[in-house]
């Protein structure tokens, strides 16, 4: 086994986490990771060992995610990605099984995918705007505005969620 495979292996936990933020269902997310590493393995020659493996792998994953979204859009008419991959299946890993975590992940799925990916790359995965820009293939300024809008949307979704929760409690 060479160094490059080792580097991919070392990135697996983070790739899985990023995938889980993009598509909520665990199995669908792991399929995305699987596709990503398969693609990465076929492209290892093009990857310079000095390059940051995380950025390289996140870029591959992001492109696969975008392809998937596009396919979804072509196929289904009004099925949102969330409905197709996320809350419809509702498989919750036990660690995430608490209200706060569930709500924020649900809210994350409700915001536009391009904002979701920018927000997660920076706020969860700790990439700089410049790094996120490379991964997403957009200018750093666009990363910034997607994050700003993403945060606003997320806040709104979370406020709605807590309002719904309050109403449910009151109705009982």
């Amino acid at each position: 086994m060479d160094e490059k495979r080792g580097a991919i292996l070392a990135e697996l936990p983070r790739l899985r986490r990023y995938a889980r933020a993009l598509v909520r269902d665990r199995d669908v997310a792991d399929d995305l990771v699987q596709d990503c590493i398969e693609k990465a393995l076929t492209r290892m020659d093009g990857w310079q060992s000095g390059d940051n493996p995380r950025r390289w792998l996140f870029t591959i994953m992001h492109n696969l995610f975008v392809d998937q979204l596009r396919r979804m859009k072509r196929r289904g008419t009004s099925v949102s990605y969330e409905e197709a991959t996320g809350s419809a299946m509702m498989t919750e890993p036990s660690q995430l099984d608490n209200i706060a975590a569930r709500e924020v992940l649900q809210a994350l799925q409700a915001i536009a995918p391009d904002r979701r990916s920018a927000l997660v790359l920076v706020a969860v995965e700790g990439l700089t705007y410049a790094e996120a820009a490379t991964v997403l293939g957009i200018p750093a300024g666009t990363v910034m505005s997607r994050i700003a809008r993403g945060r606003e949307e997320l806040r709104k979704e979370l406020e709605d969620a807590s309002r719904r929760r309050t109403i449910r409690v009151v109705e009982r």
Binding site: L9, L12, R14, R17, A101, V104, V120, V124, L158
Partner: peptide, 23 residues
């Protein structure tokens, strides 16, 4: 909240299928 919700994913056992694909 996002970090707390997503953080633990990085400590889950990685499915064997993924590591096998690489190794």
């Amino acid at each position: 909240r996002l970090q707390t919700a997503l953080g633990p994913v990085a400590y889950e056992a990685v499915p064997g299928k993924l590591t096998e694909t690489i190794l």
